[in-house]
Design a protein around this nucleic acid. Structure first.
Lengths: 350, 350
DNA sequence: TTGTAGGCGTTATCAT
DNA sequence: ATGATAACGCCTACAA
């Protein structure tokens, strides 16, 4: 019965069984017009008998393409990147292209290994969120060698290449202005991941928005991981202990990790009764259940699906032969008002 | 300068430039011992000059392996599957194996296309969450042809193959018992995705737990999508309108989509003041911020990372030649108490 | 319409 | 130690 467990039948086998030439089998398999009905049936029978399936790896090697792309992201389990990844995958599948995904863990050395491995497989192209500290020279080599690369979430630093980014500056600015419009002047800026390009952009925009509104920036109100030896919870405790006139009345979280940390800390505020008032809160990056938390969290939402789709578009355009200059696409962000940021500046007694 | 933009250098090119034979280049590239220092330097130089990089696709074709696996899941953007995916990827990378992921959207026909495409690429093996309605015959063919398949999240129905599952029954049973232990007898069972194997298992366990406790199952208290024409919000409204003696005092959500819907509905309960009491709530499947919502949501947590790791383990064991009988691994679930389920049965007046 | 032969970029088996 | 040469499984002129 199941005689062959190890190796699959090849076209040669099919040709032999059908008593025809190799090329004829190829023609049948590819639906090539010129083959007589008689031999087609013969071949189809042999194919069925041997349950032959064309080996696409061999086919693609011969044709010099891979019909697959590499997708290199910080972490495919992260909601932002997984959504981006899904959008890329959808575009790819529509073009009969498979995607090989790999997570860098934000480690530049690991990223390099992955990218090199992908290029060694001769993927048709690459979509990359390059970790901080990536030496781009090897990427430049790959691009020159003919593997187009589209950067996502962070632009290349010393490289002219396509990129798709969130409107970090615009979004952050809008968010901070929103807080200012609601009367806040003491606005803290909280970050976890301050070596990330996107986060740095947002912090910069925060400062600028303050300046534009004629508000003096105060370093005490800025907290980034690893900059003052405190974690976010400790920082909030310290802020609570500030004299009322210095205490922040609003919190701007520049990324979701900071947001989650802040939400947890606020939730567990020592000695607070359940309904104690929160400072105004505005988070960059939307998250599931942001509308369910009490109060609903106002956010500047990114659109990871749009980023992924745009990146795939760009990449496939290159694969289709577009040799135009490198372009950078900025994907808009959106302010979603849910209540947490629309409170007046009363410094919540804790 | 950049003369070659189109095609990369091949070993043949390197051999020519170094003035050596093809085989020698191969030896150098692979660090094969027997090659003189002199020629090695020569070849290395040529490699550098041409910035040659071995084409792994060709190499792997020759060696008859793919060094890559296929990962077919409902949706790589779903938190459960993306975490599972990440775990698989980690194991794969450790074995110098790349993973090609593909999302089925829970569509059996699409899943088949993806799997067939993956097998045509001759992936070494497959990790699959098969959509409901999958005809398994073609999978059986692939397995017979030598591509091992490990099922995740749902077992094969008419197939003897490896599988890694959550302890759906045990977890659901534990959860319902927890509610019962807190005095509840009117426990609703809410599902969104009732054609999913896992959800069906949980519903079944819910019924059994009730029966074991001597509680009469009441169909009115069970709601599944598409079974009564109501969405979850409407169902909750209807439940609120029930006479107090029939009204559920506790809610058991069998999956995260139901959980989210319920959380939203409870949050927006018509005419409820912010602090209005909730019924006891217990959700199957953990989620980010489950501890931040007020009250914290008690859940039966799954361990998608463990599932992914176990599946990869199983698959690689097969690839290493294990021909033992198919095994099914059940990954334990864990009850995480956070407050939402530990309230006595007072039917919250809305 | 059909078959033969050469090649895609490697590796593996022979000799030398 | 090194080099031809034949595979791997397929596609594609070119012939027949």
């Amino acid at each position: 019965m199941n005689q062959a467990a190890a190796s699959r039948a090849t076209m040669k086998d099919v040709a032999a069984r059908a008593g025809v030439g190799l090329a004829t089998v190829s023609r049948v398999v590819n639906g090539d017009a010129k083959v007589s009905e008689k031999t087609r049936i013969l071949v189809d029978q042999a194919i069925a008998d041997l349950s032959f399936r064309r080996n696409d790896s061999a086919r693609l090697l011969r044709q010099g393409i891979a019909a697959s792309i590499g997708v290199v992201l910080d972490d495919v389990a992260d909601p932002f990147f997984s959504t981006l990844n899904r959008a890329v995958e959808t575009q790819a599948i529509a073009r009969k292209t498979l995607s090989m995904t790999a997570s860098t863990g934000n480690d530049a050395a690991h990223a390099k290994e992955l990218i090199v491995a992908l290029c060694a497989r001769r993927v048709d192209g690459l979509i990359v969120a390059a970790p901080h500290g990536t030496e781009e020279s090897y990427l430049a080599d790959e691009i020159r060698a003919g593997t187009p690369v589209v950067f996502v979430d962070r632009p290349p630093v010393a490289l002219k290449a396509d990129a798709v980014l969130s409107d970090n500056a615009g979004g952050a600015r809008l968010g901070v202005q929103h807080l200012i419009a609601h009367g806040h002047r003491k606005i803290a800026c909280l970050s976890d991941g301050s070596n990330l390009y996107s986060v740095r952009q947002r912090i910069e925009a925060y400062r600028q928005a303050l300046a534009e509104a004629g508000i003096q920036a105060e370093p005490v109100l800025e907290h980034s991981d690893g900059h003052d030896g405190l974690d976010l919870g400790q920082w909030l405790e310290a802020a609570d202990a500030l004299p009322e006139s210095d205490r922040p009345t609003a919190l701007f979280c520049t990324n979701s990790r900071a947001s989650v940390a802040v939400l947890r800390a606020l939730r567990n505020r020592s000695g607070a009764e359940p309904g104690a008032p929160w400072p105004a809160l505005l988070c960059f990056d939307d998250f599931e259940l942001a509308d369910v938390v009490q109060p609903g969290i106002t956010v500047v939402a990114q659109d990871p699906a749009a980023i992924g789709a745009a990146a795939a578009d760009l990449l496939f355009r290159r694969l289709d032969g577009d040799t135009g200059p490198a372009s950078t696409i900025t994907v808009p962000t959106r302010l979603i008002v849910r209540g947490s940021a629309e409170t007046p500046p009363v410094s919540g007694r804790r």
